[in-house]
Design a binder for these strands. Structure first.
Lengths: 350, 350
DNA sequence: TTCGACCGTTAAACGATTTAAACAATCGAT
DNA sequence: ATCGATTGTTTAAATCGTTTAACGGTCGAA
């Protein structure tokens, strides 16, 4: 049951542990007879030898373990792909991930950092469940990177979504389809995502000549489907000329679908709707499917870990940078050119 | 930057490392003067000493690290709570989780086990992303438990949902509301969940006197919202007398909502619908909210880790057992008594 | 003296890596 | 023939930072 140790291998092969170690680590450069080498390798095989990573790490002062401080990523269903991307990148370079879930408080950060330091993690990836600014305590791991977040003082390498370019893809779709009366269902919080997406909206409005864009924006505190419903009803009531709605996220878009149904507007014939996030549970389930933009979660996780490994192996001496990654446009069928004359718009009910 | 070692602490406190270790580990039983002890503790404080877990583990032959072999749990948005439950339970007893994501193939299992063994994990929790039977290779960790899965040979402690009792909660709701004509939107695969839920359905049908239950079952290969839509349309077309639909999961239920809307049936007045899973992205977003059952993901994760720790610390000599955990009923508003006369049922369109 | 408490230290692990040195064989030079 | 140098192969020993069994002084009491 107990695993074979290097000593046992060396005894079986009738060499010293040093020889066994040198042979098996491959770093021997033909210092040994081919005969000794194979004898060692066969002994190792026979015993099913695998190095004890604790011992190896203790001696070599590197664990090949990366800490993943997950700020609610595990908890929420939104960003699991980020962890998967991180795992993939880590495994590809023979690193493992020690994942610790925390809430975003400074104490939680401090505790998480200590915990990972106790385990001698070679580096730490802090992953957030949404694009936010993070206040990283001054006592921090030597090597760290951020995913879906950036440091308030910009002192850490960070990988975030390119909000502007990402949403511009769906805005272009709307614009190129010929819509002129476009509404926006937004979020009234002050997040990077909010700012980036609204900036893109305004630029698109200018570019395509959308009328009175500022008057066609509705914002809510929360972004549940019912908020989307309310905003959509409000927008369409105030301005029945709207032929397209852009939602800050898919949940809001889902509410807009319900509003459209209630107002007797067919999607996409009477009303085009686009979302953001590509929450498949929603975007694939709606009829028609929701045209939206997938956040680059997998990429952020992957790139962040790759960068982290570069830092750890000090192949990288560049100053910290923030990389904004564009998400993938997913076209599903909720966008069509505006119809010349709308079928109906009965605002009477509810 | 480099962390203080026990040796440094002992030098500052002017004692031997053994003394420092003994004092700090608390296992000294008054072998030392209170004065020496505080001197050590102050030195440790001053240097911010924290034990190197590699060294500690190497010496003590226990890592306080549990391996979490995640069979696609990370990847899918369904079962994140299981990992959270596991984390909570582990942290509560001062264990950490080394998470490795795998697909369910035997080779992946073997690799995962080896990897975790390399890290000298004290025990392994295998967590599945849905309730399934798992074929665990014969070479396996000394201590292991399963969550949301059970071993084909029942040789491992397992924590699974109680499918029968869980769905019975919504079935009772339907039955007690007075429905007699109930349809079931199912899955045609052979999973434990399918079997358990259908068994409960049949028993409920008997108990409440539901008519011709076997004729009112529709099953699909997949369980997307469109499958639910198709099944619901088929059921309601075949038997317009149905006043309630029970769905195998929330996605299917979501499709049933759409079918109802299309057929002009109001929920819950004309048609009651219940789901299963409580995928909040769906169940909270639908109007009315979907009455459903939440799977006990958090509990499975928590209990599995607690059991695992018992095994590791060998406080538990019982033979392997399988524990079935009931999920929580979440009532939202998609259930009402059957109406005496239905408003309409226009089967003409689509 | 001798025996227990009492307080503390020595030293051997744990399982690898890695440096420096030992050992052996070969070879030209004296 | 003998020696020193050279090259090629292998190993002893230190090291990483802990834990812990075993041991050793000191001192007051019997």
């Amino acid at each position: 049951m107990a695993r074979a140790t290097l000593k046992e291998v060396s005894e079986l092969a009738e060499v010293s542990v040093a020889t066994a170690s040198l042979v098996l680590s491959g770093k021997s450069g033909n210092r040994f007879t081919e005969e000794t080498a194979t004898r060692v390798r066969e002994a190792a095989d026979q015993l099913g030898y695998r190095a004890n990573r604790l011992a190896r790490s203790l001696r070599s002062q590197q664990t090949r373990v990366l800490g993943l401080l997950s700020v609610e990523v595990l908890t929420t269903p939104y960003a699991g792909d980020m962890i998967r991307g991180a795992q993939l990148a880590a495994r590809a370079r023979d690193y493992d991930l020690l994942i610790v879930e925390i809430n975003g408080t400074p104490e939680a950060f401090a505790e998480g950092f200590e915990l990972l330091a106790d385990h001698q993690a070679d580096g730490v990836l802090v992953a957030s469940f949404f694009h936010q600014e993070l206040l990283i305590p001054k006592t921090r791991p030597r090597h760290m990177v951020l995913a879906d977040a950036y440091a308030a003082d910009h002192s850490v390498d960070a990988f975030v979504p390119n909000e502007y370019d990402s949403i511009t893809q769906v805005l272009n779709l709307i614009g190129e389809a010929g819509h002129k009366h476009v509404g926006y269902i937004g979020d009234c919080n002050d997040y990077p995502a909010v700012r980036g997406r609204e900036a893109a909206l305004r630029d698109a409005a200018l570019r395509f000549g959308w009328t009175n864009i500022e008057d066609n924006i509705a914002r809510s505190e929360d972004t549940n489907s019912s908020d989307g419903y309310n905003s959509a009803i409000a927008l369409l009531t105030k301005n029945p000329a709207l032929t397209a709605l852009v939602a800050y996220n898919d949940r809001l878009a889902m509410g807009a679908f319900r509003a459209a149904a209630e107002l007797g507007l067919a999607i996409p014939e009477d009303l085009s709707i686009v979302g953001f996030d590509d929450q498949r549970l929603i975007s694939e389930a709606l009829r028609p499917g929701l045209t939206t933009v997938a956040l680059p979660h997998l990429e952020m996780g992957r790139l962040a870990v790759e960068k982290l490994i570069q830092l750890v192996e000090s192949e990288d001496e560049n100053p910290p940078a923030e990389v904004a990654i564009i998400g993938d446009l997913v076209e599903r069928g909720s966008v069509a050119p505006p119809s010349a004359h709308r079928t109906s718009l009965n605002l009477g009910q509810s």
